[in-house]
């Protein structure tokens, strides 16, 4: 069993979780709180979240 695989995986996961929490902790600059036209855009989970479409429709009319 290759030990380097476990070391490399642990390193990558640590870096990812580190940058994720670091990003969450930094607040958005002022003026940027409400500028996004959709609430679903900040969700990393999906580009085609249904929240996008609702906000867009509200925005168009």
């Amino acid at each position: 069993m290759n030990l380097w695989a476990i070391v490399w995986l642990a390193l990558l996961i640590a870096i990812f979780i580190g940058t994720y929490i670091w990003n969450k902790k930094t607040p958005q600059p002022e003026g940027c709180e409400d500028m996004s036209e959709c609430s679903g855009c900040h969700n990393i989970a999906c580009t085609h979240h249904s929240a996008h479409h609702e906000e867009e429709i509200k925005d168009e009319y």
Binding site: I13, F16, I17, I21, I44
Partner: peptide, 10 residues
């Protein structure tokens, strides 16, 4: 709860 998404991705 804070690190849900990274864990899911892994």
């Amino acid at each position: 709860n804070e690190i849900r998404i990274p864990v899911f991705i892994v």
